[in-house]
């Protein structure tokens, strides 16, 4: 178990971040290459005013008509993503490790806050999951892989929560936590989770297409 731990907190971190960031870059560069010939329509009407507004409104909580019409989902989706970023980035334990390794770290949230945000995140995740199961128009779209990705995104939070509260065999839970988190990072570039980057391009495009060309709002 210790060897496993050593590997995951040493080379494992490097490998997973390398694949995560490198993968996203490779995918984006590949799409950029494809787009040169086949997506002239993206470049011909590019205007960052409209592209920016199209992106910006979807980053705001309930910033779009669509999310305002479905406020429960809108809130769950927003909270889900905020916690998804905030908890791992500003967790005291993560930043302590960072500081030990590099001497620099991000500011940290008090543990009690991170703890609450973790629970909030999991509740939001459950709402998203429940919605997938309950609403026919979402269920019909959802594949086993979609369920897997949603659950898998929650796993680092579940295991992190257990480890923090020392529920279960601490060492194993901690190893599971790190393993899940690193696996998740490596999955992002190759799955629909690549939307973390591609969102900005696809939203910008519809902003150009409907906004620059027609003056229509896309939010």
């Amino acid at each position: 178990m210790t060897e496993m731990y050593e590997f995951l907190t040493g080379p494992g971190v490097w490998i997973s971040f390398f694949i995560f960031i490198g993968g996203l870059i490779v995918r984006t560069v590949y799409l950029f290459g494809v787009s040169q010939e086949r997506d002239r329509v993206f470049y011909n009407h590019a205007d960052w005013k409209w592209g920016g507004r199209s992106i910006f409104h979807w980053l705001l909580p309930l910033g779009s008509v669509s999310l305002r019409e479905q406020p429960v989902f809108g809130a769950a989706f927003f909270v889900f993503h905020v916690c998804l970023f905030a908890v791992p980035l500003f967790l005291l334990a993560h930043n302590t490790l960072l500081h030990e390794a590099f001497g620099v770290a991000l500011p940290s949230l008090p543990d009690s806050v991170s703890d609450i945000l973790t629970v909030v995140f999991l509740v939001a995740g459950l709402i998203l999951l429940a919605r997938r199961l309950v609403r026919p128009e979402v269920r019909i779209l959802t594949t086993a892989w979609d369920y897997f990705l949603l659950v898998f995104t929650c796993l680092p939070f579940v295991t992190g929560f257990l480890a923090f509260h020392q529920i279960g065999p601490y060492q194993s839970v901690l190893v599971a936590h790190i393993a899940c988190a690193e696996a998740l990072l490596m999955l992002i570039p190759f799955t629909k989770l690549a939307h973390a980057v591609l969102f900005f391009f696809s939203r910008a495009f519809i902003g150009f297409e409907m906004g620059t060309r027609r003056g229509a709002r896309t939010w």
Partner: peptide, 19 residues
Amino acid sequence: SARIKSWLSICSRCGLCAE
């Protein structure tokens, strides 16, 4: 195209478009 490749792969199957 890069657009169709992206659209087909990032649709998060959230069903928001239905309504």
